[in-house]
Each structure stands twice: as C-alpha cells, then as structure tokens.
C-alpha cells in the first residue's frame, strides 16, 4: 500500500521536472535559432569581404573563405573616398545627435514640468509632426536648403536632422516620471536659478534616457539615405550610405567591394553600440519602471 502511494508523487514530480527541462531547452533552442538568423547576414557580409569574385558567386556558398584576399578592401579604399564618406557620416551623425539631445532635453523638460495651457497645444503639434513622414516635407525642405545655399554641405544635411519629435516625447515622459516636482521646488527654495536647475538637477537625472536617445539619434543619422541623397550630390559630400549605394549600378552589383565597404562601415556602429549598450537598455526599459 505504502509503496505506490509514496512513488506516485515522486514520479509525478520527476515528470514535472522533465517537462520543465524540456520547455527550457525548447526556449533556448528557439532563441538560439533566431539569434543565428539575425547575426548570420552580418557574418556573411564580413566573410564576403574577404572572398574572391569567383567564390562569391559559387554554389553552395562558403562561410569561411577558401582563399582569403584583401583585394576587395584595398580596392575600396584606393578607388573610392570611403574614409571621407565615413567622416562625413560621422560628423553629420555626431552633430545631429548633439542637436537632438539639446532640443529634446530642453523641450521635453519644459513640456513635462511647466503648466501652461499653450504648452499642451505645442506638444500636440510636435506629436502631429511625428505622424507626417519625412519624405512628405523633404522636397520643400530641399528648396529651403537650396535657397540658403547650403547644398552639398554638412549644414545642409543637418537641417533635416536637428529635432526629433520622438526624442522630445521620450524625454518628456522621462521628466514626468523621474523628476519629482519637489526636487525642483527644493532647488528653487535653496536659491537655484532655472538654468542651474536644468543643468545640475534635471540633466543628471535624465542621463540614461539621454543615453538611449543618443544611440537612436546617432543611428538615425548614420543610416539616413533619402535626405543625404538629394542634398549631397558631389562625390566629396556623400555620406557613407549614399556612397555604398554607388557600388550598385543599374546593371551590375560589385558584391566584393560592396561587402568590403559595408564591413568597414559596421565598425563604428558596433563600437558605439557596445559602448552605450548599458545606457540604451536602461533608458528604454527605465521609461516604464523605476523604484
């Protein structure tokens, strides 16, 4: 009598254990599969950069090049001003990030903390602009840049990327959430001026949100294509995205060079993401929950 009654719960719990382990493995397997699917194109891209033209089109494709060659890299660096394009992109993305951080922090703080009815209307207008696709007002903006004589220059590029309505929204939500009114009031009583409060109380408290926004803003500019394509039309003023597109002409694609150039372009993006990863994850996750 006692044997089956004892063994029943045991076998029950071991069954449950086995089931849980199987579920864990299934989840792991699923995640690994998707992880590989996400990373594989990038790894193939890097691998292709070191392949000969024959190997690039051979079937089945190889993952590790049979005859690794640096020809593609040297050709790209010698034949095109790739480094100049990268510098253009880098300068454009950096200045755009700085401008977006500044405008978002100030506008987000004012919209989040100051109670005037007119501010609600302004906030609605800002939200409304987020709905309009950039392509819609790209052409009018182009004519403005043209009349300002800023075509083919960094400043012309920047004009479309100084303000980011999502950034203002993100910072506003963060201000409401993580900057309590009492903190500002305490500072006012302690004798701090409004600018002082902004720079020494509000900005430090928004550090992780601003970090997340910096990553978003930088990559938005780094990967921008349509606007640089119409504003920067000389070979020297191209950004890297426009430059990369040149490898693809109407009739042929120079896969080797394109891969090599793309692989070089990956370096700064990956570096920046690794550096700011902690901020990015905290900032985006922190908008919802905080102690």
């Amino acid at each position: 009598m006692s044997i089956p009654s004892n063994s029943a719960p045991q076998s029950g719990s071991s069954k449950w254990n086995r089931k849980r382990k199987l579920t864990d493995w299934a989840i792991d397997g699923f995640l690994i599969l998707f992880g590989v699917m996400m990373v594989l194109p990038l790894l193939m891209l890097v691998a292709n950069a070191f392949k000969t033209p024959q190997e690039l089109v051979s079937w089945p494709p190889t993952f590790i090049p049979n005859n690794p060659t640096l020809d593609n890299l040297t050709a790209v660096l010698n034949d095109t001003p790739l480094l100049l394009w990268m510098f253009n992109s880098f300068a454009f993305a950096t200045l755009s990030t700085i401008a977006i951080l500044a405008t978002s922090a100030i506008a987000g703080y004012v919209l989040g903390k100051f109670k005037y009815r007119s501010l609600n209307i302004i906030f609605l207008i800002i939200l409304a602009t987020a709905i309009v696709p950039f392509e819609v007002y790209m052409i009018p903006l182009y004519f403005q840049v043209q009349s300002l004589g800023m075509l083919n220059s960094l400043w012309g590029l920047l004009i479309g990327y100084l303000v980011m309505s999502f950034g203002i929204f993100l910072i506003r939500q963060n201000v409401i959430h993580s900057v309590p009114d009492e903190l500002l009031e305490a500072a006012r009583i302690d004798g701090a001026g409004e600018l002082w409060i902004f720079f020494f109380i509000v900005v430090p408290l928004l550090r992780s949100a601003l970090g997340a926004l910096a990553v978003l803003a930088f990559f938005q500019a780094w990967t921008a294509f349509a606007w640089p394509l119409i504003v920067a039309t000389t070979r020297e003023s191209y950004t890297i995205e426009v430059g990369l597109a040149l490898f693809q002409t109407g009739f042929t694609v120079d896969l080797g060079k394109l891969s090599a150039a793309s692989a070089i372009v990956l370096i700064p993006s990956v570096t920046l993401f690794v550096l700011l990863r902690k901020n990015f994850v905290e900032g985006v996750a922190g908008t919802g929950l905080k102690e």
Binding site: E182, E185, R188, I189
Partner: peptide
Amino acid sequence: EPKHRDIAMVFQNYA
C-alpha cells in the same frame, strides 16, 4: 521669490 524669503522647507518625500 522663494530663494529671497530666507526660509527652508522639508518635503514629505524628502526631495
């Protein structure tokens, strides 16, 4: 202005 009133305030959530 608050800063010229020569007062100090302690808030409920400490601030």
